[in-house]
Simulated scan of single mutants.
Amino acid sequence: MGMWSIGAGALGAAAVALLLANTDVFLSKPQQATLEYLEEIDLKTLEKEPRTFKAKELWEKNGAVIMAVRRPGCFLCREEAADLSSLKPKLDELGVPLYAVVKEQIKTEVKDFQPYFKGEIFLDEKKRFYGPQRRKMMFMGFVRLGVWNNFFRARNGGFSGNLEGEGFILGGVFVMGSGKQGILLEHREKEFGDKVKPVSVLEAARKIKPQTSSASEKK
């Protein structure tokens, strides 16, 4: 009887732990970025002789859609990159550029990511686009039903990847207005494969007001 009680108790505890792991109770809450914070981020081009510049250059004139990639080799990130790239024709019509930032450049990971992403990619060595408060999802992610659903969705979509690089710091997607217009959309990945809705990106992009030459001169 005692062994049965211990077994039932352990099973009950495991069930409760699994239930809690599938709620948002233990997820770290994202801290919203400010325009001032994002403007001063240092980015690097991925050329042989990289140029360092302030992130605000990306959206100063025409706004921008920016993906902070969790890991280029991740098949879930490649799926989201393909989703965003499907918006490229409409973004081009609006005059809004599409960019991505990565937190590291190892082997051919960025090069292998480019077939999925139709925009220019930059290096954010200090991982500032993943802040102001960096959030990580560790092994708890593998017991979340939402994550497994995302895995199957991406696999069924024909996406594959590898395990190269850091993949625990969560990414996101930003739609930036031009100049001082501000952040029009900020999607923070809450778990592996938590994609932004393309329709939301497009709605935000349509709100961008391109800077006129006179406005740029005043600045």
Rank of each mutant, 00 (worst) to 15 (best):
F192S: 09
Q133C: 01
N62G: 10
F192N: 10
E40T: 15
E125A: 15
L27R: 10
N149E: 11
E189L: 05
F53Y: 10
K107M: 13
A205K: 07
K90T: 13
V101T: 02
T212S: 13
L20E: 06
K56S: 13
R188L: 07
K88L: 09
K103T: 13
E36C: 10
P50L: 14
K54L: 13
T212H: 11
A55P: 08
G172Y: 00
E191C: 11
K207Y: 01
K44E: 15
P72V: 11
K218A: 15
P89L: 05
F122D: 00
T108S: 14
D112S: 09
P30F: 04
R134C: 09
A33D: 03
G9M: 10
A205P: 03
S178T: 08
E79P: 00
S214I: 14
I121P: 03
K61T: 15
A17K: 09
F26V: 09
V65P: 00
I208H: 06
G2W: 04
K219H: 15
G167P: 00
K136P: 09
I121Q: 04
F26K: 08
E203F: 07
Q133L: 13
Q105D: 15
V110W: 01
F26M: 11
D194T: 03
T23E: 08
K29L: 10
L27M: 13
S85F: 05
T45P: 04
Y130K: 01
S86M: 10
F113I: 01
T45G: 03
L35E: 06
E93M: 07
R206I: 04
C74Q: 01
H187W: 03
N156K: 07
D124M: 07
P210S: 14
T52E: 14
L163R: 13
L27Y: 10
E36N: 14
L76E: 02
F122V: 03
L185R: 01
R188Y: 11
E120A: 12
Q211V: 12
E109P: 05
V96W: 01
E166R: 07
E39I: 11
T23A: 07
K136H: 13
K90G: 06
L84Q: 01
